[in-house]
Write a protein that binds this DNA or RNA. Structure first.
Length: 654
DNA sequence: GGACTGTGTCATTCT
DNA sequence: AAAGAATGACACAGT
């Protein structure tokens, strides 16, 4: 259900973006709550490399999902809002005033019922002017346009000629528009979703209409031009009107249908649209459908892929590459999937690498059986906290086995001989050349790869002479070449542990369970100084892991933000292009309307038989697509209106 | 020699 | 209350 909600929300955002392009603002903040499920992405994301513990301390919740407050995936949630703000900041294209008037009118069902005129022909001459005029007088337009009502009674009908005085307005082909509405249930949706291709086609059709060369003589069939234009634009705009009002009121329930009509998204969406509902219902039981849905969402949004990139990586990792490619139908999606695949493949490679390390460890185990214990003692004396190559991660599965492995330590006074049963490091060179005997230990439980033993010369050095306790606070001396070389390779904590004859390695101290650690502190008769050192070693080791984890998480966050910036920039460019195209389209429509208005008015006659002055009259398209001749509003009226508006604004400011 | 980077450590906060 | 995770800040070493 959350996934479905997530999809709907993305569709809602798209709808809002498109509505914003036509100047309608929709506040989706309430719909964005519970948008993403970052917990899933956290678990699947790259941030889990150094994860030492489960995300049990994910503090904040977002609609039931636990979210770490500093989790980079949380930014996607805010990115959605930021995207909406950016779109709103783009503003709306400024259309001609007449078009704005068309946009705000709404066709109600009752209007359609009341105005269901028996007009069956596109030829306006076949209709009864008187019947139409009466309909105009009682329509909603009459309420909004009282002046038009008066004029309506005296203006002749188009095509009737001057002799038909008393005809009101002219008839628009209601049936034609209705047929188009029935046959094309969502032309407006196509316009509203402002697909580039669709807008281009629309623009081409409009350009064809507006082209004077291709325009038929106005005397022949002006009505057909109007019908063509109105069927093209008025129907669409009326549906847009209804979309703006109805869909916003019922957007929770109708958003699914609105999205399903989004034929401008991608072809792949069409192929998947039929199964969309099915996949939503079976999301929990059909992983393949879930993957398809994820892919579907990726393609439908076209820009939100990074939101689900983490999930995509894991989800698609299980898919054969060919099948993944078959599911994609455009280049952009393939590129996006390629990124996801890269990430998934990279994760698999990492796993293979870790498995390979396991293999190496097993090989090393057999090879180390002949190594001198003294050498191994030196080996384990490193901090050994390098985590990157640990086969089991920072929290090794064998951490609970530390006690058993540590049982072989010698509680001699110096404690240096064989107190460690673990191999802290995999020396990069030379270690396999050792042929000296070495007592077998349980290496499989605690194999630690420490890269600090990088110098082969170290293995040629005699065993370290443990310094006195005072070394804990003494700086490392470079006077003694051999010891200083080794000291540089050893961690300070390891040296301190040796100095205090602590029979545990740093790794053991750090990784053993806290209960076991407390038992060690209590059961071995350590001095207070040793206890303090043990606690410090454990604390520093834990903190070291935490620091590495934190740094990696920070890098992941930076990477995610960079990708988000690139994605948003690309989306911004795309939206700006669509905005420009929409403005261009609407401008062409406005010019065409002006031209047709002039043609119509030139053929209308007033009571005295004189042609109407286009400067004094204009055509207004009311509800149901009816066109009314209306006198041009005086500038003084508009000025007064603007003054009133300004006064209201001033009052509000005060 | 200075800038940059990676790492360890400490202090602090929070769970 | 203790352990530990998370993180900023600092120091240090290496490049």
């Amino acid at each position: 259900m959350q996934i479905a909600k997530k999809y709907f929300t993305e569709g809602l955002i798209q709808l809002t973006i498109l509505l914003s392009l036509i100047g309608v603002r929709v506040d989706l903040d309430s719909y964005l709550s519970g948008y993403y499920s970052p917990l899933i992405e956290i678990n699947l994301g790259p941030s889990s490399a150094y994860t030492q513990t489960p995300f049990h301390n994910l503090r904040e919740t977002l609609d039931g999902y636990s979210v770490h407050p500093k989790c980079p995936e949380l930014d996607y949630f805010f990115a959605s809002r930021r995207l909406l703000d950016e779109v709103r900041a783009l503003g709306s294209p400024r259309f001609p005033t007449q078009l704005n008037a068309w946009l705000v009118h709404q066709v109600s069902a009752t209007d359609k019922a009341d105005c269901g005129h028996p007009s069956t022909s596109n030829d306006s001459t076949d209709t009864s002017p008187g019947l139409e005029s009466s309909g105009y007088e009682t329509s909603d337009d009459s309420e909004h346009l009282p002046s038009g009502q008066e004029l309506c009674q005296t203006t002749p009908q188009v095509g009737q000629g001057p002799c038909n005085g008393g005809a009101c307005g002219f008839l628009k082909e209601d049936n034609d528009a209705k047929v188009k509405e029935e046959e094309e249930p969502a032309p407006l949706t196509q316009l509203a979703h402002s697909s580039t291709l669709e807008q281009e086609s629309l623009l081409e059709s409009i350009s064809t209409l507006s082209d004077p060369a291709q325009l038929p003589p106005p005397t022949t069939d002006v009505d057909q031009h109007w019908s063509h234009l109105l069927s093209l634009s008025v129907t669409d705009l009326e549906e847009l009107d209804s979309l703006v009002t109805d869909r916003l009121s019922d957007i929770n329930t109708d958003i699914a249908s609105a999205i399903s009509q989004d034929v401008s998204l991608h072809d792949a969406m069409v192929t998947n649209a039929g199964a969309f509902g099915v996949t939503l219902e079976r999301a929990d039981t059909r992983p393949v459908s879930q993957q398809q849905r994820t892919l579907f969402r990726l393609e439908s949004t076209g820009s939100s892929q990074s939101n689900a990139s983490s999930g995509m990586a894991t989800g698609l990792a299980a898919l054969p590459f060919a099948s993944v490619c078959n599911l994609t139908s455009n280049v952009s999606s393939q590129s996006e999937l390629g990124d996801c695949l890269d990430e998934a493949v990279f994760d698999q490679i990492n796993q293979l690498g870790l498995e390979g390390l396991d293999t190496i460890d097993s090989q090393l185990l057999s090879g180390l059986e002949s190594i001198d214990p003294q050498v191994l003692e030196d080996l384990d004396s490193d901090s050994g906290l390098s985590l990157e190559s640990s086969s089991g991660g920072p929290v090794s599965p064998g951490s609970s086995e530390m006690s058993s492995s540590s049982s072989s330590y010698c509680e001699d006074e110096c404690g240096a001989t064989g107190y460690s049963s673990e191999v802290d490091s995999v020396p990069p060179k030379g270690i396999m050349d050792y042929t000296t005997t070495w007592s077998p230990v349980d290496l499989s439980e605690s194999v630690w790869h420490d890269h600090s033993y990088s110098s082969p010369a170290f293995f040629n050095q005699p065993s370290v002479t443990l310094p006195s306790k005072g070394i804990k606070e003494e700086p490392l001396s470079d006077d003694d070449g051999s010891s200083s070389l080794e000291d540089r390779e050893l961690s300070r904590d390891e040296l301190r542990a040796r100095a205090l004859c602590i029979p545990f390695s740093v790794l053991q101290i750090v990784n053993m369970p806290v209960e076991e650690f407390l038992e060690v502190l209590d059961g071995h008769g350590f001095s207070p100084e040793q206890v303090t050192l043990l606690r410090d070693i454990r604390r520093r080791g834990k903190n070291k892991l935490a620091a590495q984890n934190c740094r990696k998480r920070k890098l992941d966050a930076i990477t995610g933000l960079q990708e988000e910036v690139e994605r948003l920039q690309a989306q911004r460019d795309r939206l700006l292009r669509e905005k420009q195209l929409t403005a261009k389209t609407m401008g062409a429509v406005g010019q065409q309307i002006e031209q047709l208005t002039r043609d119509v008015l030139a053929r209308l006659r007033d009571d005295s038989g004189q042609p109407l002055n286009p400067e004094r009259f204009t055509l207004q398209c009311g509800a149901n697509g009816r066109v009314v001749v209306q006198p041009v509003r005086r500038p003084a009226v508009s000025t007064s209106t603007s003054n009133k508006t300004d006064k209201r604004k001033k009052e509000k400011k005060q």
